[in-house]
Design a protein around this nucleic acid. Structure first.
Lengths: 198, 198
DNA sequence: GCTTAGGCACTGCCATTGGCAGTATGTCAA
DNA sequence: TTGACATACTGCCAATGGCAGTGCCTAAGC
């Protein structure tokens, strides 16, 4: 009887769009939700079964040759639960970056290591941006599966574009700053006060 | 003999600055590292003990009245391990936002709910910015405990400022867009293509 | 017609994490 | 001297991450 987890509602949300097999759900959680709600595929299988237990989804076995697969669909109770959840307060946003930990403790290592970490961050952000641009273009295709939801998706897509653009710009800036230092301890006369300005 | 977790290295990093009691470590993980490496206080107690097991830290029992506390210090092996880790590749950055999940599935709920979610995101980002500005000012105080590390900290602080500023700006923009819609399904003639530009 | 690479459709397992609750002592101010 | 709040942890359990393993299906290439 305990409340559903955020992941539970995320799965209901996907089911509100259409019915999916668990495998498809797991894929979709990686591909679309993964950008702002990263969860391992593994757990989606458990979560979907839980939704059925609580009456928010129904499952049906299909056969593909001799192989069974489970298709999940949302129930009216599921739709109500989703709508209610959409009106609730959200948990604070979380950011997790091993690279930023390395930047934070950079004075325990070499300047080259710091520069490599910063360059890695820039490259990662650029890669993500390339993928996002591809997604933005795909929205234009009329055959796009979620055309009904395409417009609202633009909000989230824009968030991701802004986010990764910001990371890429910060990393480029930080690299330039650090490149002028003598070491991670002796930063020359670097003007950190100016770095925090606007 | 298995490798240390990222959290393990984060704790070694803190110990590289000075010695701490476990309670202080746990606090510090919340206050400073928490911005980009959020972990519950609880686990820090276990993690510190693990560092001792592996020889990266040493512990000493002190007495405050009749109450015992454990102080942890870094060992030379710990310093070496930290320096090595600083040269390794970082795991990809992760972002987790329940609010963005609600935006993504907003068409299952009311427009008011979407607007409330967006306003919540803006307010949260503004609050974080206020705290960060306070931290930036504290850097100016000459008595600042980490004055040796203050300069390098400016890089990370700048990241956080940029990040939360971006969130606040996006949320404000998204609110304005959504405020003009008729519902979460009927967006009027909203130009989503333009929303993805620049 | 046969092989094989890659996608589909899961399940098991276990270490790590999150999060809450609980215990007990220390300190400072009213 | 009585709270209130800070210090200093420990226990417990559900949720999560991540990897490995099983087996079937399909399409391409020889």
């Amino acid at each position: 009887m305990s409340a559903l987890s955020g992941t539970g509602y995320a799965v209901i949300g996907l089911l509100s769009v259409r019915s999916w097999s668990t495998y498809e759900l797991a894929q979709q959680v990686q591909r679309s939700l993964g950008w702002f709600w990263p969860r391992t595929e593994r757990k989606i299988y458990d979560e979907a079964r839980r939704l059925v237990e609580r009456g928010y989804a129904s499952s049906a076995n299909e056969m593909v040759g001799r192989r069974r697969r489970t298709m999940y669909s949302i129930t009216p109770a599921g739709r109500t639960a989703l709508a209610e959840w959409l009106g609730a307060d959200s948990a604070p946003m979380k950011l997790e970056s091993e690279a930023l930990v390395r930047v934070f403790f950079a004075d325990g290592g070499s300047l080259d290591d710091l520069l490599a970490t910063l360059e890695g961050m820039r490259a990662e952000a650029e890669e993500k941006l390339t993928v996002l641009w591809g997604m933005a273009e795909a929205l234009d295709e009329p055959a796009y599966e979620f055309s009904r939801r395409l417009q609202i998706n633009a909000l989230g897509l824009r968030f991701q574009l802004d986010h990764h653009r910001m990371v890429a710009e910060w990393a480029t800036w930080a690299y330039e700053q650090a490149a002028g230092w003598n070491s991670t301890i002796d930063l020359g006369g670097w003007d950190w006060r100016n770095a925090l300005r606007s």
